[in-house]
Nucleic acid binder design. Sequence first.
RNA 1: UCCCCCGUAGCUCAGCGGUAGAGCGGGCGGCUGUUAACCGCUAGGUCGUAGGUUCGAAUCCUACCGGGGGAGCCA
Length: 473
Amino acid sequence: MPTTKRPRTRIKDLLALEQLPVPNDPLVVMGWVKTVRSSGAVAFVQINDGSAFADLQIVVDANCPDYALVQRLTTGCSVRVTGILQESLGRGQRYEILADAVALLGDADPEEYPLQKKRHTLEFLRELAHLRPRTNTFGAMARVRNAMAFGIHQFFQQRGFLYVQTPIITASDAEGAGAMFRVTTLNINDPPTRNGGIDDGQDFFGRPAFLTVSGQLEAEIFAQSMADVYTFGPTFRAENSNTSRHLAEFWMVEPEVAFCDLDGLADLAEDFLRHIFAHALQSCPDDMAFFNRFYDKELIATLESIVAADFERMTYTEAIAALQSSGERFEFPVEWGLDLQSEHERYLTERKVGKPVIVTDYPSSIKAFYMRLNEDTPAHRQTVRAMDVLVPRIGEIIGGSQREERLNILQSRMAEAGLDQAPYWWYLDLRRYGTAPHAGFGLGFERTVQFATGMQNIRDVIAFPRTPRNAEF
RNA sequence: UCCCCCGUAGCUCAGCGGUAGAGCGGGCGGCUGUUAACCGCUAGGUCGUAGGUUCGAAUCCUACCGGGGGAGCCA
């Protein structure tokens, strides 16, 4: 087998060339075969290396010593190709490679290889999480997801935010944000007992430990010293949720900002979403065009309008009034004090205003203890400085609040919620020593990728989805 | 967790009480600077699993398993 010292050229870089290179020396490209069209005179092999949405067409004529080999290539094989870049004689692509040599790196038995050169259902591909990145959809998804993750860091870094890594294993519970996964080294078949129960003192940490449901409380610690911080990492919910919008393991972005109130936080959330959508559109135009064509014809227009326009803002009280006067018939009741249901959120963002909506100042009774209590509200209509960012089709994409920085009010709110203050001693200390106004939000990364790609099911925007009874890969 | 729908060839589906079908994909052959090429031939199935009803079950009933959609919870 011939070898070469020449480095591999990425398909993306070849296709981006303004003109043919001078001198036009032989290049080496490597990738996986998408499709082969062969004949008695000439064969065409389309390969993809993941660097770009587009495939590269390899032309192999009878002069090529590997012509016979190419006749046997099938979808899924990996190959190394040496050849000259030329303007394509056919339509459908600008450049192609005229092959001098083709080497088979890895075979893929066509009788067994499950991916065909045609569309598969997303449900089928979920069973093939190890091969689906080779498809157009999941290659595009991987690149857009990567671009959005980069855009998130870029947004915060440009604004001087500090990226902090909060723990994945935690002993605290962020106010029952959801059922938690227990982490233990105890022998679950024969755990040590004490006083009739499991002796947690003998567990690894000397106490019960869990996978985190949120990095918020730890991010607040850093906001109370570094002022502008964000986290971006995995979080875990052991809820038995079987929907197209929930995962047991998902990634969350959580900025936490000192000396910031809810209005400032809403501004930040709006700028943030606009930045990452603009970044996805700008850095992955081919992938976004693909999603627009095959998954949501309105996708690019919707994202561009979000990038261009201000979000609508209304208070919870205004939202309730709007719902009550809408003339719509809702399945769930609309009444001040009740939480907004999915159907209500979707009405507001899809029908009422037709763009993202930020709803603020929810009743304190339906929100978490750490959200800042509004002054000047009647006792029976107490509200907190909370906000939800609602977007069409997904519903809630961001939830956040200004935090309660006043120690006495925070303590009374915890008491109302029936929370034991002892485990939160450090959280309360932040209010005892140099407390400062601050605010933060959480953004579900997969839901944001869902929104940006038009993918209907959250299991198709993460490489290895974790859902109830599903952790194969 | 609740409600509804669906499990038939490698994939996508039809068949809905009476001898298991199509398209695509695969194999073989042909043809062509082709574009998820095209043309011909061909192989391929314990009809999700286990019970039940029936002379007879892919088809009707029950349970379980798996998948999907919606709801709740939320991000």
